[in-house]
Design a protein around this nucleic acid. Structure first.
Lengths: 216, 216
DNA sequence: ACCTGAACACCGTTCAAGT
DNA sequence: ACCTGAACACCGTTCAAGT
């Protein structure tokens, strides 16, 4: 009668999947392997999750749910910039801590509670600041696209092997005739986080302009 | 002695893969299936392509190579904005015509001739316009991230089934208490191409500000 | 109700064998 | 040199069977 404390639940399955993906990457996440980390046959998982796609959706939603929401700033409308910037920076950091989530999030349109929490946070903050519903909608897409696009760049492991032989040739300068522009810029060392901060400012400034323009 | 006109080449393999992915999606692209569209066993493909990953890299590079390069504008430096905008718009259109390329491009760091052509085009145009190498480098990342992030949004087929049940509930207004912000904005019909055009302007304006700031 | 084992219809890739 | 067939080590998922 005593229900074993190790009873499977949907939540334990998702958590174990997150742990496995963090440790060994997405390509190691098979139902059989996931089952074995839970001490159970693969087929048992199907009692708690309809199929692997649903599991992947739940994993992404758990990550997006960690992006947070803009703080309230005690009714200071002008501070929507701080709030939105902060969420964009947090989202980027969270994605980099779970790089597998980036390609998944880019490919799956699933909307769950985690994504809604984030979207609601941004939308509400912008509406409070005087954005029209239409402009808030567009701003959410802009914020979203920026987070995903920039995070994808940072997450792709730039190993020489994965990037291919041309990058080494570029770096050595031997392709200077054919690609003079990139040859001149490729050695600019870039602090990705700093670049992202510049991008976030650029976006928030842009949204600010859209807001002002819409007021006239 | 007559070499059969149907001889396999790396190029024919890649072309067939593009056609297959366009027609049936990435999940239908298996080596066995690809072989059969070429009238050949799967294993023959390995004489022209080292493995499937290399094939995927070649496919993405073929698509990125279609993004084009900024026109020269007869030495009119101020027109870097037109040139960069045009490439961003073309890139988006090309990606939407081959949606499978978006998730691939987001996941693979491979740099081939197609990507170099695009990167060289943008870099050169910016350097000509007076961007420092450092700023041109950063601008390329910004342009790249914007293209990928926004295209990913547009490419995810937003079928009700794939997005999950919460979107329908939101649309019906039944989650208005929990998510008042998105409930207020979700019905803003958005023309995605128009939104992207706004985003491109926002980015180009931002780059312009960075250029001006760097001059002081 | 929950878990299992065998099975089905696939994968990418190897390797020795054919021409 | 190029193509093949069989095989290996996997997949996600079904289904009937166990408790």
């Amino acid at each position: 009668m005593v229900r074993p404390q190790s009873a499977l639940t949907r939540d334990r399955v998702v958590q174990a999947a997150l742990t496995l993906a963090d440790a060994d990457g997405l390509e190691s996440l098979s139902m059989r392997r996931l089952g074995s980390t839970l001490g159970v046959e693969a087929m048992s998982l199907y009692h708690h999750v309809p199929n692997k796609d649903a599991l992947l959706d739940a994993m992404v939603d758990a990550i997006v749910g960690q992006w947070g929401v803009p703080a309230d700033h005690a009714g200071n409308e002008a501070d929507w910039r701080t709030g939105v910037s902060r969420v964009m920076l947090t989202a980027h950091a969270v994605l980099l801590a779970h790089p597998w989530a980036i390609e998944l999030a880019g490919a799956r349109p699933f909307v769950g509670p985690g994504r809604l929490r984030y979207a609601e946070g941004i939308s509400m903050r912008l509406l409070d600041a005087g954005f029209t519903p239409r402009l808030a909608h567009q701003a959410l897409h802009i914020v979203d696209g920026t987070i995903m696009g920039f995070s994808a760049q940072a997450a792709r492991r730039p190993t020489s092997a994965a990037m291919g032989p041309m990058v080494d040739e570029l770096a050595s300068g031997s392709l200077g005739d054919q690609y003079p522009g990139i040859t001149r810029t490729i050695h600019e060392h870039h602090d990705h986080d700093e670049e992202y901060a510049v991008m976030v400012d650029l976006i928030v400034d842009g949204l600010s302009s859209l807001l002002v323009a819409a007021r006239d």
